[in-house]
């Protein structure tokens, strides 16, 4: 069952369309990624689904409700973490959770959330004294305190150090395990690759691809490279005829095999069959970065806002 359905969504700022005929649906219980460079229309799309912005045209249904018309009812069933939202400096962690819990019909026990999100010892701490990671965990806990069916999380690990990101990722997986559908807005490839069941890739206000991260990567139509150092001499012809292999080149004592599809498996079994032991075998796999370049013809990081 689709939890979120977006059809032909258009949102303009002035005359400029920021979101241009975007359609997608999010299924119950998945982590759905919205990936793209800054300014691609990701946040605007999600804010339309949250009821914060009114679409210029197109339709959105979240849990069967219209986010603008049925906003009050919907707000009981969704949890939101906004990209640039803070709390008052002087509010204490428990006060914020207790306050937000009081907004909802059937809130979770915020004391449990406090423990679950590793904030139990920060209960009395003021918001202004928390670290970046602690603030993010508090925001996620606040998004979940109303016991939502859908959680929208926007750029939640931006600015966190690698260890804090890892911790946060594990916690997001736990949200899914609890049966909550998660919409994750991100401009971070590794985050999306790690967490998302499906990803909509946004570029310039449109969705340029929508699939699982694995399928997006395998759809990249470009050579991959396999490098190794042979420990005994062998003839290149052993490899050049193999299915998928495009070229075999040597560089010093290294051999570089370019190919497509599952050529790596064919290469390693051919080497094994001919008793060629190898060292320092590396497969350079495609990543979502390559997928993005392949889809848009541009590198991901060079986008300006």
């Amino acid at each position: 069952m689709a939890v979120i359905e977006v059809n032909d969504l258009v949102k303009r700022y002035g005359r400029l369309p920021v979101v241009n005929e975007v359609s997608f649906s999010v299924e119950q219980g998945e982590i759905f990624g919205i990936l793209g460079p800054n300014g691609a229309g990701k946040t605007t799309t999600v804010e339309c689904a949250e009821g914060l912005r009114r679409p210029d045209s197109g339709s959105i249904r979240v849990l069967g409700l219209d986010p603008v018309r049925d906003g009050r009812e919907l707000s009981h069933q969704v949890g939101v973490q906004l990209q640039e939202s803070l709390l008052p400096e002087n509010i204490k962690v428990w006060e914020a959770l207790d306050l937000y819990a009081s907004f909802y019909r059937a809130p979770k026990d915020w004391r449990e959330l406090l423990a679950e999100w590793g904030l139990a010892d920060k209960r009395q701490a003021r918001f202004g004294t928390l670290s970046g990671g602690q603030k993010q965990r508090l925001f996620i806990a606040l998004a979940l305190v109303g016991d939502p069916k859908v959680a929208f999380l926007d750029e939640l690990t931006t600015g966190l150090d690698p260890a804090a990101r890892r911790v946060t990722w594990e916690l997001i997986k736990r949200i899914r395990a609890a049966g909550v559908t998660v919409v994750l807005v991100s401009h971070s490839m590794d985050e999306v690759e790690e967490l998302c069941d499906r990803v909509a890739v946004f570029d310039r206000g449109r969705i340029v691809a929508l699939d699982t991260p694995a399928n997006l990567i395998s759809a990249v139509d470009a050579d991959q490279h396999l490098r190794f150092r042979p420990l005994t001499p062998f003839d290149d012809a052993v490899l050049t005829g193999l299915p998928g292999v495009v070229s075999v080149t040597r560089s010093g004592d290294r051999v570089i095999v370019a190919g497509r599809g599952d050529f790596a498996g064919a290469v390693t079994s051919a080497l094994a069959r001919d008793h060629v032991p190898v060292a320092e075998l590396r497969v350079e796999q495609h990543t979502l970065d390559d997928a993005f370049i392949a889809l848009t013809g541009r590198a991901f990081d060079t986008q300006e806002r």
Binding site: E50, G51, L52, V80, L82, L87, P88, Y100
Partner: peptide, 17 residues
């Protein structure tokens, strides 16, 4: 103005309050 600047008003409009 601080509440608006910090996105607190915006955050609240995603809740039932």
């Amino acid at each position: 103005a601080t509440y608006r600047e910090r996105g607190i008003l915006r955050r609240l409009s995603t809740t039932p309050v």
